[in-house]
Structure formats: structure tokens, C-alpha cells
Amino acid sequence: MSRLAVPKTYKLYIGGAFPRSESGRTYEVLAADGGFLANAAKASRKDARDAIVAARAAVAGWSGATAYNRGQVLYRIAELLEGRRAQFVAEIEQAEGVTRAAASAQVDEAIDRWIWYAGWADKFAQVTGNANPVAGPYFNISVPEPTGVVAVIVPQDSSLLGVVSAIAPALVAGNAVIAVASERFPLSAISLSEVLATSDVPKGVVNVLTGSPAEIAPWLASHADVNALDLVGAGDLDWISLEVDAAETLKRVLRPESGPDAAAPALGRISAFTETKTVWHTKSLL
């Protein structure tokens, strides 16, 4: 006897929960061969607003965690990804129409990249911070602090690797992230959210929106409560006007990247979303 198929409903990931779009809209995600794969939620501007509220609420806790603790939490995500690799490989195979080997290689690279960034959590401050030379009996120290709420348009041409490459570096320093997933390959981003939801990442630290980046990005760029905008995957959008919108509220902006090296792992992606705080302290009270 044949079983009825139980298709999965892919929803948004906002504030640690998986709501449908407030607008009730969905869109069809197609496989590489043009066949129907799944319905994904089509996020509206209000979903973006809700995600920003959730992210803002999460910043204090996540950035207040010790660097060592953040590293441990991020490392555990990589462990959980490893446990679910079969699911991701199958998803990528179907969505991108690549061979199992290629899909497997993408998952490997995503997990390795996550671990690479997790390792930086308690090390990047030593590299980007500094003890400044001064002519007096006091220390002068510069330390990197997280920028706050970071909105990311993830690379549009990959399922998993693009999302990981874009959100992991922003998380390292203690930022909270709103990621707009790839419009064509959104399913792995939501599956990644399920991993995040069952790991130790506090709710709201990562929020994932699926749908049309062209529709959602302007609302993120102009929102006054977003502190930085990573346009790495926005090459096909009108990203210059997004940059102009972002400038209205003094956001940090990273420009689009394309090609095989887009969003390549780099310390610069971590330090892009930090602010340098410089303080002084007396050398001795005696």
C-alpha cells in the first residue's frame, strides 16, 4: 500500500518561532528541472519589521555573552549541521540540480566555514583591538564592539553556503541578524533555521525571511532600527538606492559581491560589523 506524501511547510523564522507570513502569501519554489518543490512563505514589510523588533530585543543578551560562550554556541551549530547533513545534501541536490558529490561538497564547505568563524569568536578582538601607545601613566585600549542589528541580503546563487557565509561572520561579534534568503533557493535557509532553533542560539539572534529581496530590502535599508546592511547578495537589486536609503540613518553598508569568491571567509567580514570603543585606565593606583 502506498503512503500519502507529507510535504513540508517552509515558514519564516522570526524571534525563535516559525510564523507564516503576516500577509498570508506564499510562492512556489521550483526544482532545477522546473518541477514543484515546495511552497515558501513570501515575507512582507511587516514581517521584516517584526524580525527587526525580535533582533533588537536579542542584541543585549547575545552581545553580552562572553566571547568564549559565543564561540561554543556557534561551534555547536556546526555540530548539529553535521548531524543533518543528509537532509541538506538532498535539499541542495533537488533545488540546484547538482550531483550528490557537488551537494555534499557544498555542505562540507558550509560546515567548515561555520567552524572557521566560530573559532574567531574569542580571537578576533585580539587582532582588531589594540593597546594604544600613550605618553602617560595609563593604558589606552581599543576594543571592537558589535554594531547591533545587521540586515543581510544573502548570496542568491547558492542554497546553504551563501547563507552560512553571510550570517556567521555577523554573529561572531555579537550582532543580531535578519537574513533575507535566496529567492530561488530558500529551503536550505529555513532548514538551517531549524538547526538554529534547536541549538543554543538565543531566540531573535538570527531571523530568516524568505520571499522577494527586491520587495523586502528597501524596508530593511530605510528602517531606523537597523544598524548595518550587508548587501553581499544584492548585486541584481537596485543596490545603489538601498545604499542611499541606508545612509539616511547612518548604517554601515557592505557592497554586493559576485563570482566564486563572493562572501569568501575573511576577518574583514567580522570586523565590518563592529564599532571600535577606545577607553583608558590608570596603570596603577599606588
Partner: peptide
């Protein structure tokens, strides 16, 4: 203004 404001304002 037409765009969302934030607690900083």
C-alpha cells in the same frame, strides 16, 4: 517619513 523608526529616535 514613510520608513520605520527606531527606539534611538
Amino acid at each position: 517619513t514613510g520608513h520605520y523608526s527606531g527606539a534611538d529616535y
